[in-house]
């Protein structure tokens, strides 16, 4: 029996089959298996279209090129000043309104409590960026806490109960190299760039990290259990953050923390779907 050519089998994924093709498939398990495999490849390739990647350039790089092309006016690198007074954090929009790209600031505006329902439609990638922002912010606060415990309290930060809890969470982290900044603006510019690097690494890890892969944790069932447990913890954290946001809707720390948790939840949910048996899918979580 002469088998169908590989190209012919590949064409039958979206081309009509002849009677001879159909008859051959009924008799030949090898060509049938080839057809199933090709069809699976094509289906998987179509899914690839929906897979986002980490942008190939940073915004700073692109902004430089856009400015060179005359498509964008130079923008102030600083978006907002945070002023800490007696335990309350409030944001003051201090970037020059003249010449500032009007689309620049919304992504960094604090998320208010009444916007929580809208955030569920935010792109997963943006949520992960939020997570990066929060993590970078917490690291910075950790550094500030280290300074405070060493006797050099950064202006008013020791008053914040949020920061106190962060200090408790990372009490003994060694601070080997505390960067020196010329001004709060300088520190924030550094923070912004760190956020971008962090978000890139986070997305890369979300796609490639195999630490929780079935092979590492003892099978798909164990991996699924790990992801489910993580989802439960994240849901509890989100509930707490949501309550805090209703109390202090403008608090940038809580806003970033909430977005961070959302991002982590999204990534975890995506990973969970990859370890479930083919017969199962997550409809709602």
């Amino acid at each position: 029996m002469q088998h169908l050519s590989p190209e012919r089998i590949a064409s039958l994924v979206d081309e009509p089959a002849t009677t001879a093709d159909m008859t051959h498939f009924q008799l030949c398990s090898r060509c049938r298996a080839d057809f199933v495999a090709v069809r699976r490849i094509v289906a998987s390739a179509a899914e690839e279209r929906e897979q986002p990647i980490v942008p190939l350039n940073s915004w700073q790089q692109l902004a430089g090129a856009l400015q060179a092309e005359g498509l964008m006016a130079p923008v102030a690198p600083v978006v907002a000043h945070s002023v800490v007074t007696a335990g309350h954090v409030r944001s003051i929009d201090s970037a020059a309104s003249v010449g500032r790209d009007p689309a620049y600031s919304p992504a960094r505006e604090p998320v208010r409590a009444h916007q929580i329902t809208r955030r569920s439609s935010t792109a997963p990638w943006m949520r992960v960026v939020g997570m990066a922002a929060a993590a970078a912010l917490l690291v910075t606060i950790g550094v500030a806490g280290g300074r405070a415990s060493a006797g050099g309290a950064p202006g008013g930060l020791e008053q914040s109960p949020v920061i106190t809890s962060v200090q408790r969470a990372v009490p003994t982290a060694p601070i080997t190299a505390v960067p020196q900044f010329r001004s709060p603006e300088d520190a924030r510019a550094t923070l912004n760039s760190a956020e971008e690097v962090y978000s890139g690494a986070l997305l890369w890890l979300a796609a490639h990290d195999s630490a929780l892969a079935p092979r590492q944790v003892g099978g798909s069932a164990a991996a699924a259990m790990n992801y489910r447990q993580r989802l439960e913890v994240l849901d509890a954290a989100m509930a707490t953050a949501r309550r805090a946001l209703y109390e202090a809707p403008d608090d940038p720390v809580m806003n970033r923390y909430y977005l961070a948790t959302l991002g982590a939840r999204e990534v975890t949910l995506r990973r969970l779907t990859t370890v479930l048996p083919a017969s199962q899918q997550v409809l709602e979580y």
Partner: peptide, 29 residues
């Protein structure tokens, strides 16, 4: 597609082992 099928043969055959018969749906006539 045919080349990809050849390149991915080990993986795809492994994945379709359990569904080789059940997962088959004839192409459109």
């Amino acid at each position: 597609r045919a080349r990809l099928r050849r390149l991915l043969a080990p993986l795809m055959d492994h994945l379709t082992t359990s569904t080789r018969e059940d997962g088959y749906a004839a192409p459109l006539a």
